[in-house]
Design a protein around this nucleic acid. Structure first.
Lengths: 162, 162
DNA sequence: ATCCTTGTCTTGACTAGTTCAAAACAAGGC
DNA sequence: GCCTTGTTTTGAACTAGTCAAGACAAGGAT
Protein backbone atom coordinates (compact mmCIF):
# COMPACT_ATOMS: atom_id res chain seq x y z
CA UNK A 1 0.00 0.00 0.00
CA UNK A 2 2.62 2.44 1.11
CA UNK A 3 4.67 1.43 -1.90
CA UNK A 4 1.71 2.16 -4.11
CA UNK A 5 1.48 5.66 -2.69
CA UNK A 6 5.17 6.15 -3.24
CA UNK A 7 4.79 5.01 -6.79
CA UNK A 8 1.92 7.38 -7.41
CA UNK A 9 3.87 10.26 -6.03
CA UNK A 10 6.87 9.57 -8.23
CA UNK A 11 4.65 9.17 -11.26
CA UNK A 12 3.23 12.59 -10.54
CA UNK A 13 6.71 14.03 -10.39
CA UNK A 14 6.64 14.55 -6.64
CA UNK A 15 9.17 13.45 -4.10
CA UNK A 16 8.17 10.77 -1.66
CA UNK A 17 8.07 12.20 1.82
CA UNK A 18 6.58 11.16 5.11
CA UNK A 19 4.03 13.99 5.28
CA UNK A 20 2.81 13.15 1.80
CA UNK A 21 2.44 9.46 2.52
CA UNK A 22 0.56 10.28 5.72
CA UNK A 23 -1.80 12.60 3.90
CA UNK A 24 -2.41 10.00 1.22
CA UNK A 25 -3.21 7.51 3.92
CA UNK A 26 -5.76 9.79 5.50
CA UNK A 27 -7.35 10.61 2.17
CA UNK A 28 -7.71 6.91 1.44
CA UNK A 29 -9.53 6.44 4.75
CA UNK A 30 -11.62 9.60 4.47
CA UNK A 31 -12.57 10.09 0.83
CA UNK A 32 -13.80 13.62 1.53
CA UNK A 33 -11.62 15.03 4.25
CA UNK A 34 -11.15 18.66 5.16
CA UNK A 35 -7.76 20.12 6.01
CA UNK A 36 -8.32 19.79 9.73
CA UNK A 37 -9.28 16.14 9.52
CA UNK A 38 -6.21 15.48 7.42
CA UNK A 39 -3.92 17.21 9.89
CA UNK A 40 -5.38 15.25 12.78
CA UNK A 41 -5.28 11.98 10.92
CA UNK A 42 -1.82 12.42 9.51
CA UNK A 43 -0.43 13.21 12.95
CA UNK A 44 -1.12 9.65 14.01
CA UNK A 45 1.78 8.64 11.84
CA UNK A 46 3.68 11.89 12.00
CA UNK A 47 2.90 13.76 15.24
CA UNK A 48 4.97 16.83 14.52
CA UNK A 49 3.20 17.59 11.26
CA UNK A 50 2.12 21.20 10.97
CA UNK A 51 -1.10 22.44 9.38
CA UNK A 52 0.91 24.49 6.93
CA UNK A 53 2.75 21.41 5.80
CA UNK A 54 -0.58 19.77 5.10
CA UNK A 55 -1.76 22.76 3.11
CA UNK A 56 1.46 22.58 1.17
CA UNK A 57 1.07 18.88 0.52
CA UNK A 58 -2.52 19.30 -0.57
CA UNK A 59 -1.62 22.15 -2.87
CA UNK A 60 1.08 20.02 -4.45
CA UNK A 61 -1.36 17.12 -4.86
CA UNK A 62 -3.97 19.30 -6.50
CA UNK A 63 -1.39 20.90 -8.79
CA UNK A 64 -0.05 17.47 -9.71
CA UNK A 65 -3.54 16.21 -10.42
CA UNK A 66 -3.59 13.41 -7.86
CA UNK A 67 -6.14 15.11 -5.64
CA UNK A 68 -9.10 17.34 -6.21
CA UNK A 69 -10.33 20.15 -4.06
CA UNK A 70 -14.04 20.65 -3.59
CA UNK A 71 -15.57 23.58 -1.78
CA UNK A 72 -19.17 23.15 -0.77
CA UNK A 73 -20.73 26.51 0.02
CA UNK A 74 -20.39 27.47 3.64
CA UNK A 75 -17.97 24.71 4.57
CA UNK A 76 -14.21 24.32 4.62
CA UNK A 77 -12.64 22.82 1.52
CA UNK A 78 -12.59 19.06 1.14
CA UNK A 79 -10.07 16.93 -0.68
CA UNK A 80 -10.48 13.67 -2.51
CA UNK A 81 -8.20 11.35 -4.42
CA UNK A 82 -10.78 10.40 -7.00
CA UNK A 83 -9.89 12.53 -9.97
CA UNK A 84 -10.47 12.64 -13.67
CA UNK A 85 -13.80 10.85 -13.79
CA UNK A 86 -16.02 13.90 -13.62
CA UNK A 87 -18.14 12.62 -10.81
CA UNK A 88 -20.28 14.89 -8.67
CA UNK A 89 -21.32 15.22 -5.05
CA UNK A 90 -24.23 14.91 -2.71
CA UNK A 91 -23.90 17.15 0.33
CA UNK A 92 -25.94 16.92 3.50
CA UNK A 93 -27.13 20.34 4.67
CA UNK A 94 -27.30 19.12 8.22
CA UNK A 95 -24.10 17.22 8.96
CA UNK A 96 -21.99 18.06 5.94
CA UNK A 97 -21.60 14.43 4.87
CA UNK A 98 -20.51 14.06 1.28
CA UNK A 99 -21.16 11.18 -1.10
CA UNK A 100 -20.05 10.67 -4.66
CA UNK A 101 -22.39 10.36 -7.62
CA UNK A 102 -21.26 9.16 -10.97
CA UNK A 103 -22.13 11.44 -13.80
CA UNK A 104 -24.62 9.06 -15.33
CA UNK A 105 -27.26 11.54 -16.35
CA UNK A 106 -25.47 11.29 -19.67
CA UNK A 107 -22.41 13.07 -20.85
CA UNK A 108 -24.20 15.89 -22.60
CA UNK A 109 -26.53 17.35 -19.98
CA UNK A 110 -23.67 17.40 -17.56
CA UNK A 111 -21.49 19.48 -19.75
CA UNK A 112 -23.55 21.65 -22.01
CA UNK A 113 -25.54 24.62 -20.82
CA UNK A 114 -28.27 25.87 -23.13
CA UNK A 115 -26.62 29.21 -23.70
CA UNK A 116 -22.96 29.68 -22.94
CA UNK A 117 -23.11 33.49 -23.06
CA UNK A 118 -19.81 33.44 -24.90
CA UNK A 119 -18.04 31.43 -22.24
CA UNK A 120 -15.71 28.62 -23.17
CA UNK A 121 -16.66 25.91 -20.70
CA UNK A 122 -14.18 23.32 -19.54
CA UNK A 123 -15.95 21.79 -16.58
CA UNK A 124 -19.39 21.36 -15.15
CA UNK A 125 -19.62 20.99 -11.42
CA UNK A 126 -22.77 19.62 -9.90
CA UNK A 127 -23.65 19.63 -6.23
CA UNK A 128 -26.82 18.00 -4.98
CA UNK A 129 -27.99 19.44 -1.68
CA UNK A 130 -30.23 17.63 0.73
CA UNK A 131 -30.19 15.48 3.83
CA UNK A 132 -28.28 12.24 4.21
CA UNK A 133 -30.25 9.23 5.36
CA UNK A 134 -29.06 9.52 8.94
CA UNK A 135 -30.01 13.17 9.33
CA UNK A 136 -33.29 12.66 7.54
CA UNK A 137 -34.19 9.74 9.80
CA UNK A 138 -33.07 11.58 12.88
CA UNK A 139 -35.35 14.47 11.99
CA UNK A 140 -38.24 12.08 11.58
CA UNK A 141 -37.45 10.35 14.85
CA UNK A 142 -37.76 13.63 16.66
CA UNK A 143 -41.25 13.94 15.26
CA UNK A 144 -42.20 10.29 15.69
CA UNK A 145 -40.69 9.58 19.06
CA UNK A 146 -37.16 8.30 18.80
CA UNK A 147 -36.98 4.72 17.73
CA UNK A 148 -33.64 2.99 18.01
CA UNK A 149 -30.87 4.94 16.43
CA UNK A 150 -29.58 2.22 14.20
CA UNK A 151 -27.04 4.00 12.10
CA UNK A 152 -23.38 4.27 12.68
CA UNK A 153 -21.49 7.46 12.24
CA UNK A 154 -21.45 7.97 8.50
CA UNK A 155 -18.54 8.98 6.37
CA UNK A 156 -18.06 12.63 7.03
CA UNK A 157 -15.05 14.80 6.80
CA UNK A 158 -13.53 13.11 9.78
CA UNK A 159 -14.53 15.22 12.71
CA UNK A 160 -18.18 15.65 11.83
CA UNK A 161 -20.45 18.27 13.21
CA UNK A 162 -23.15 15.64 13.57
CA UNK B 1 -38.30 51.99 -8.83
CA UNK B 2 -37.53 52.89 -5.27
CA UNK B 3 -41.17 52.37 -4.50
CA UNK B 4 -40.99 48.95 -6.07
CA UNK B 5 -38.11 48.03 -3.80
CA UNK B 6 -40.05 49.28 -0.83
CA UNK B 7 -43.00 47.22 -1.86
CA UNK B 8 -40.89 44.12 -2.25
CA UNK B 9 -39.39 44.59 1.16
CA UNK B 10 -42.76 44.97 2.82
CA UNK B 11 -44.09 41.94 0.98
CA UNK B 12 -41.19 39.97 2.36
CA UNK B 13 -42.04 41.14 5.86
CA UNK B 14 -39.03 43.42 6.14
CA UNK B 15 -38.94 47.03 7.15
CA UNK B 16 -38.03 49.57 4.52
CA UNK B 17 -34.74 51.18 5.42
CA UNK B 18 -32.18 53.23 3.61
CA UNK B 19 -29.44 50.57 3.79
CA UNK B 20 -31.79 47.99 2.36
CA UNK B 21 -32.90 50.18 -0.49
CA UNK B 22 -29.30 51.00 -1.28
CA UNK B 23 -28.32 47.35 -1.32
CA UNK B 24 -31.26 46.52 -3.57
CA UNK B 25 -30.14 49.26 -5.91
CA UNK B 26 -26.64 47.87 -6.13
CA UNK B 27 -27.90 44.33 -6.65
CA UNK B 28 -30.07 45.56 -9.51
CA UNK B 29 -27.04 47.14 -11.16
CA UNK B 30 -24.68 44.25 -10.42
CA UNK B 31 -26.62 41.03 -10.71
CA UNK B 32 -23.78 39.06 -9.11
CA UNK B 33 -22.14 41.33 -6.59
CA UNK B 34 -19.92 40.33 -3.71
CA UNK B 35 -20.24 41.88 -0.28
CA UNK B 36 -17.43 44.32 -0.89
CA UNK B 37 -18.90 45.57 -4.16
CA UNK B 38 -22.22 46.04 -2.45
CA UNK B 39 -20.70 48.03 0.39
CA UNK B 40 -18.86 50.27 -2.04
CA UNK B 41 -21.87 50.72 -4.28
CA UNK B 42 -24.35 51.30 -1.51
CA UNK B 43 -22.14 53.97 0.01
CA UNK B 44 -22.81 56.18 -2.97
CA UNK B 45 -26.27 56.68 -1.58
CA UNK B 46 -25.45 56.10 2.04
CA UNK B 47 -21.81 56.98 2.77
CA UNK B 48 -21.80 55.95 6.41
CA UNK B 49 -22.94 52.42 5.70
CA UNK B 50 -20.86 49.80 7.47
CA UNK B 51 -19.84 46.42 6.08
CA UNK B 52 -21.56 44.72 8.97
CA UNK B 53 -24.80 46.45 8.10
CA UNK B 54 -24.50 45.09 4.58
CA UNK B 55 -23.87 41.59 5.88
CA UNK B 56 -26.93 42.00 8.04
CA UNK B 57 -29.04 43.25 5.17
CA UNK B 58 -27.90 40.44 2.90
CA UNK B 59 -28.58 37.87 5.57
CA UNK B 60 -32.08 39.25 6.00
CA UNK B 61 -32.62 39.21 2.23
CA UNK B 62 -31.50 35.63 1.91
CA UNK B 63 -33.61 34.56 4.89
CA UNK B 64 -36.62 36.36 3.44
CA UNK B 65 -36.07 34.74 0.07
CA UNK B 66 -35.59 37.91 -1.95
CA UNK B 67 -31.90 37.26 -2.58
CA UNK B 68 -29.79 34.20 -3.12
CA UNK B 69 -26.25 33.60 -2.03
CA UNK B 70 -23.89 31.79 -4.33
CA UNK B 71 -20.38 30.76 -3.38
CA UNK B 72 -18.13 29.86 -6.26
CA UNK B 73 -15.13 27.90 -5.03
CA UNK B 74 -12.21 30.09 -4.14
CA UNK B 75 -14.06 33.38 -4.33
CA UNK B 76 -16.05 35.48 -1.90
CA UNK B 77 -19.79 34.90 -1.83
CA UNK B 78 -21.94 36.61 -4.45
CA UNK B 79 -25.53 37.74 -4.13
CA UNK B 80 -28.27 37.93 -6.71
CA UNK B 81 -31.90 38.98 -6.70
CA UNK B 82 -32.99 36.35 -9.18
CA UNK B 83 -34.51 33.67 -7.01
CA UNK B 84 -36.82 30.74 -7.30
CA UNK B 85 -36.21 29.86 -10.93
CA UNK B 86 -33.49 27.29 -10.34
CA UNK B 87 -31.08 28.81 -12.80
CA UNK B 88 -27.39 28.06 -12.78
CA UNK B 89 -24.12 29.87 -13.32
CA UNK B 90 -21.18 30.18 -15.63
CA UNK B 91 -18.05 31.31 -13.84
CA UNK B 92 -14.88 32.60 -15.49
CA UNK B 93 -11.77 31.07 -13.97
CA UNK B 94 -9.74 34.07 -14.97
CA UNK B 95 -11.70 37.17 -14.01
CA UNK B 96 -14.47 35.72 -11.91
CA UNK B 97 -17.24 37.03 -14.15
CA UNK B 98 -20.53 35.27 -13.60
CA UNK B 99 -23.36 34.75 -16.06
CA UNK B 100 -26.72 33.11 -15.60
CA UNK B 101 -27.87 30.03 -17.45
CA UNK B 102 -31.43 28.88 -17.46
CA UNK B 103 -31.89 25.32 -16.44
CA UNK B 104 -32.98 24.20 -19.89
CA UNK B 105 -31.21 20.89 -19.99
CA UNK B 106 -34.57 19.64 -18.81
CA UNK B 107 -35.99 19.46 -15.36
CA UNK B 108 -35.01 15.88 -14.69
CA UNK B 109 -31.28 15.77 -15.38
CA UNK B 110 -30.86 18.85 -13.30
CA UNK B 111 -32.45 17.34 -10.28
CA UNK B 112 -31.99 13.62 -10.27
CA UNK B 113 -28.67 11.95 -9.66
CA UNK B 114 -28.41 8.31 -10.72
CA UNK B 115 -27.89 7.04 -7.22
CA UNK B 116 -28.86 9.15 -4.26
CA UNK B 117 -26.94 7.06 -1.74
CA UNK B 118 -29.87 7.45 0.61
CA UNK B 119 -29.84 11.22 0.47
CA UNK B 120 -33.06 13.18 0.19
CA UNK B 121 -32.21 15.79 -2.39
CA UNK B 122 -33.87 19.18 -2.43
CA UNK B 123 -31.69 21.15 -4.78
CA UNK B 124 -29.21 20.65 -7.57
CA UNK B 125 -26.61 23.32 -7.99
CA UNK B 126 -24.70 23.51 -11.24
CA UNK B 127 -21.63 25.61 -11.90
CA UNK B 128 -20.02 25.71 -15.30
CA UNK B 129 -16.36 26.68 -15.15
CA UNK B 130 -14.44 28.14 -18.05
CA UNK B 131 -13.32 31.41 -19.55
CA UNK B 132 -15.57 34.29 -20.44
CA UNK B 133 -15.29 35.62 -23.97
CA UNK B 134 -13.14 38.57 -22.95
CA UNK B 135 -10.59 36.50 -21.08
CA UNK B 136 -10.56 33.87 -23.77
CA UNK B 137 -9.97 36.47 -26.47
CA UNK B 138 -7.37 38.22 -24.42
CA UNK B 139 -5.48 34.97 -24.04
CA UNK B 140 -5.59 34.43 -27.78
CA UNK B 141 -4.47 37.99 -28.46
CA UNK B 142 -1.37 37.43 -26.42
CA UNK B 143 -0.56 34.52 -28.71
CA UNK B 144 -1.69 36.17 -31.94
CA UNK B 145 -0.41 39.69 -31.46
CA UNK B 146 -2.98 41.91 -29.88
CA UNK B 147 -5.67 42.99 -32.28
CA UNK B 148 -8.01 45.72 -31.16
CA UNK B 149 -9.49 45.08 -27.78
CA UNK B 150 -13.08 45.51 -28.72
CA UNK B 151 -14.88 44.43 -25.62
CA UNK B 152 -16.08 46.59 -22.81
CA UNK B 153 -15.61 45.66 -19.22
CA UNK B 154 -18.02 42.81 -18.73
CA UNK B 155 -20.43 42.34 -15.90
CA UNK B 156 -18.35 41.25 -13.00
CA UNK B 157 -18.88 41.55 -9.34
CA UNK B 158 -18.20 45.23 -9.49
CA UNK B 159 -14.55 45.52 -8.75
CA UNK B 160 -13.23 42.77 -10.98
CA UNK B 161 -9.85 41.19 -10.65
CA UNK B 162 -9.44 41.41 -14.36
C1' DA C 1 -49.13 64.11 14.93
C1' DT C 2 -46.57 61.78 18.61
C1' DC C 3 -45.22 57.79 21.41
C1' DC C 4 -43.70 53.25 21.98
C1' DT C 5 -42.28 48.83 20.60
C1' DT C 6 -39.47 46.17 18.10
C1' DG C 7 -36.60 45.32 14.41
C1' DT C 8 -32.43 47.33 12.34
C1' DC C 9 -28.01 49.54 12.20
C1' DT C 10 -23.53 50.89 14.25
C1' DT C 11 -19.41 50.04 16.57
C1' DG C 12 -15.85 47.22 17.84
C1' DA C 13 -13.91 42.96 18.83
C1' DC C 14 -13.20 38.45 17.23
C1' DT C 15 -12.95 33.78 14.67
C1' DA C 16 -11.96 30.24 11.10
C1' DG C 17 -9.71 29.02 7.19
C1' DT C 18 -6.12 29.81 4.48
C1' DT C 19 -1.82 31.91 2.57
C1' DC C 20 2.85 33.92 2.60
C1' DA C 21 8.00 34.15 3.49
C1' DA C 22 12.37 32.79 5.22
C1' DA C 23 15.15 29.50 7.06
C1' DA C 24 15.99 24.56 8.30
C1' DC C 25 15.87 20.23 6.31
C1' DA C 26 15.81 15.90 3.52
C1' DA C 27 15.03 13.21 -1.14
C1' DG C 28 17.35 11.28 -4.58
C1' DG C 29 20.56 12.08 -8.78
C1' DC C 30 25.54 12.17 -9.23
C1' DG D 1 28.29 9.97 0.57
C1' DC D 2 27.70 14.76 -1.34
C1' DC D 3 25.14 18.34 -3.39
C1' DT D 4 21.20 20.41 -5.47
C1' DT D 5 16.69 21.41 -5.31
C1' DG D 6 12.27 20.63 -3.75
C1' DT D 7 9.79 20.20 1.01
C1' DT D 8 8.75 21.16 5.50
C1' DT D 9 8.92 24.06 9.50
C1' DT D 10 8.10 28.15 12.01
C1' DG D 11 5.80 32.16 12.67
C1' DA D 12 3.20 35.84 11.11
C1' DA D 13 -0.43 37.78 8.45
C1' DC D 14 -4.56 38.18 5.76
C1' DT D 15 -9.48 37.83 4.15
C1' DA D 16 -14.19 36.88 4.54
C1' DG D 17 -17.37 36.64 7.62
C1' DT D 18 -19.57 36.44 12.56
C1' DC D 19 -21.04 37.91 17.24
C1' DA D 20 -22.73 41.01 20.84
C1' DA D 21 -24.30 45.30 22.99
C1' DG D 22 -26.03 49.55 22.64
C1' DA D 23 -27.85 53.46 19.68
C1' DC D 24 -31.27 54.32 16.55
C1' DA D 25 -35.33 54.52 13.49
C1' DA D 26 -39.69 52.31 11.15
C1' DG D 27 -44.22 52.21 11.49
C1' DG D 28 -48.39 50.63 14.24
C1' DA D 29 -51.01 52.40 18.21
C1' DT D 30 -52.73 56.29 20.61
Amino acid sequence: METTWAHQLREAGLRVTRPRLSVLGVLAQHPHADADTIVTGAREQHPSLSPQAVYGVLKAFVAAGIARRIEPAGAPALFELRVGDNHHHLVCRSCGAVADVDCTVGAAPCLTPSDTAGFVIDEAEVVFWGLCRQCHDRDRQVAVGAEAVQFEQHEIRGGARA
